[in-house]
Amino acid sequence: MTDPIWNAEFSACFDGCARGMRFTAYLLCGDWHEAEDLMQAAFLKLYLAGPRLARREGLEPYLRRIVVRTFLAERRRVRWRRERVTDAPPELPQDAVISEDKLVLWQALGTVPPRQRAVLVLRYWNDLSVEETAAALKCSTGNVKSQASRGLAALRQILGADFADLRLEV
């Protein structure tokens, strides 16, 4: 038997969060199809857990945590499937208008190790604080700071002089 109140809350959450979660998933994995799979898996996990949740407010951070953990778990599970840098830009949704700089940055982000990528996406795309990022990844704030620092250093090295003005603060 389904709970009609939970169904309504879940529908509202899906309507409000799906697009942002899909893009967060894309930034993590670099593939729109895989991003769809991550997003669907996360929403399914949320839907199944919903009736057992003690507090149902603040579902978006909980959902974001599920997306990131699902991504990281998949990367640990499939170690042999490494991302490869190619000359072709990533496929984009047809309605997207993306600057060339963003495409280059997203490609570079795809070469950063998954844990560092997760920290960079949560901190700088989702604009989470160090503490919120640590809570989402279930790690210390120091770990978030060091992963962000290493990830930013890797991005700066990959991007080179063309992006010397890249100023993201840790």
Results as ranks from 00 to 15, higher is better:
residue 1 M to H: 14
residue 1 M to I: 15
residue 3 D to V: 04
residue 7 N to H: 08
residue 7 N to C: 09
residue 10 F to W: 03
residue 10 F to H: 02
residue 12 A to W: 06
residue 15 D to K: 09
residue 15 D to G: 15
residue 16 G to E: 14
residue 17 C to G: 06
residue 17 C to F: 13
residue 17 C to A: 15
residue 21 M to Y: 03
residue 28 L to T: 02
residue 28 L to A: 01
residue 32 W to R: 15
residue 37 D to Q: 07
residue 41 A to S: 11
residue 42 A to T: 00
residue 42 A to V: 01
residue 43 F to P: 02
residue 43 F to D: 04
residue 43 F to Q: 01
residue 46 L to T: 05
residue 46 L to D: 01
residue 47 Y to V: 01
residue 49 A to H: 15
residue 49 A to N: 13
residue 51 P to Y: 02
residue 51 P to G: 00
residue 52 R to S: 12
residue 54 A to E: 07
residue 55 R to Y: 10
residue 57 E to T: 04
residue 59 L to H: 03
residue 60 E to G: 04
residue 64 R to Y: 06
residue 68 V to D: 00
residue 69 R to Y: 05
residue 70 T to F: 11
residue 71 F to D: 01
residue 73 A to E: 14
residue 76 R to P: 05
residue 79 R to D: 12
residue 79 R to M: 10
residue 80 W to H: 07
residue 84 R to L: 07
residue 86 T to H: 12
residue 86 T to M: 12
residue 86 T to P: 05
residue 88 A to W: 08
residue 89 P to I: 06
residue 92 L to F: 12
residue 94 Q to R: 10
residue 94 Q to L: 09
residue 99 S to G: 15
residue 99 S to Y: 08
residue 100 E to V: 12
residue 104 V to G: 08
residue 105 L to N: 00
residue 105 L to S: 04
residue 107 Q to L: 06
residue 111 T to Y: 10
residue 114 P to D: 07
residue 116 Q to R: 08
residue 118 A to H: 01
residue 118 A to G: 02
residue 118 A to E: 02
residue 119 V to A: 15
residue 121 V to T: 09
residue 121 V to H: 00
residue 124 Y to D: 08
residue 127 D to K: 12
residue 129 S to R: 01
residue 132 E to K: 09
residue 133 T to W: 03
residue 133 T to I: 09
residue 134 A to D: 03
residue 137 L to N: 02
residue 142 G to Y: 10
residue 142 G to P: 06
residue 143 N to Q: 09
residue 144 V to G: 02
residue 147 Q to R: 11
residue 147 Q to H: 04
residue 148 A to R: 00
residue 148 A to T: 00
residue 149 S to R: 09
residue 153 A to R: 14
residue 154 A to H: 10
residue 155 L to H: 08
residue 156 R to A: 11
residue 157 Q to C: 12
residue 165 D to I: 05
residue 165 D to W: 05
residue 169 E to V: 15
residue 170 V to P: 01
